[in-house]
Amino acid sequence: MSRRGLGGGVVVLLCWVLASALAPTLLPGPLAVAERLPEIVASGPGGNGLTHLGRSLLRVAVATAVGLAVAVPVGVAMAVDDRIEAGVSVWLPFWMTIPTLVVVLVGMVLFSFSDLSVVAAVVVAATPFATVSVHEGAADVDRELLDMAAAFGVDRRSVLREIYLPAILPAVFGSARYLLSMVWKIVVLAETFGMNRGMGALFRFWFNEGDLTALLAALALFVGVMVALQAAVTGAERRLFHWREDVPTAR
């Protein structure tokens, strides 16, 4: 995976170099962007790059936590009770069509351009998707294992701990990862509308300046952190769920 990832990175870089060589005025090359990176990290409007990044990270963390806190109980309840499932699922196709932008703008005005605006917008826009993914995982509980436990007279608590929890946990992790990747984007979108700090505010600033090189440098910082974060979550997941790995039975 890491070797392939490296190969992929090289391909991206090559394409970038080639494109910027063809149209240097339109697309600054990787070197030009890299040169601006230290400046973006060390200084900038309304604080240095790390301040913006930290502010965004904090909002992402809080919004993801709140989103999970809603999604997990609702998702599990949907798996356990058909009526709850029916009640929630009526709304899902319609919910899919609610534009994030409208949620963000309404949230901004509703909570007067505060941190609460960002978190509320993210929770409204992203939680339903996380709920669905928890529900799918929890609905996956193997009925035959439940019968097996009944045959051996296993008590309810053990069944919850040994059968339900292991089935739900990967789903919770999966939806946390999913939620995280969505939350980032919504936070950035929200920050471009009337926030002074955060990566979104930084992107908007350089956009207003018309400075594409600086915009791409800020983007590089953002993407770098994102990729690292995703890799960390995936790594933790793999350690936690090592039993899922199929090992060939060459014995």
């Binding site: 035959e144 294992l145 097996m148 007279g153 296993v154 040994e162 292991p166 039993w243």
Partner: peptide, 21 residues
């Protein structure tokens, strides 16, 4: 089908039934 808990080791799978007993 064996109906084992795939997230538990072989020993833990047997332990699961023994504890219940």
């Amino acid at each position: 089908e064996p109906r084992l808990l795939e997230w538990r080791t072989v020993g833990e799978n047997i332990d699961f039934a023994l504890k219940a007993a």
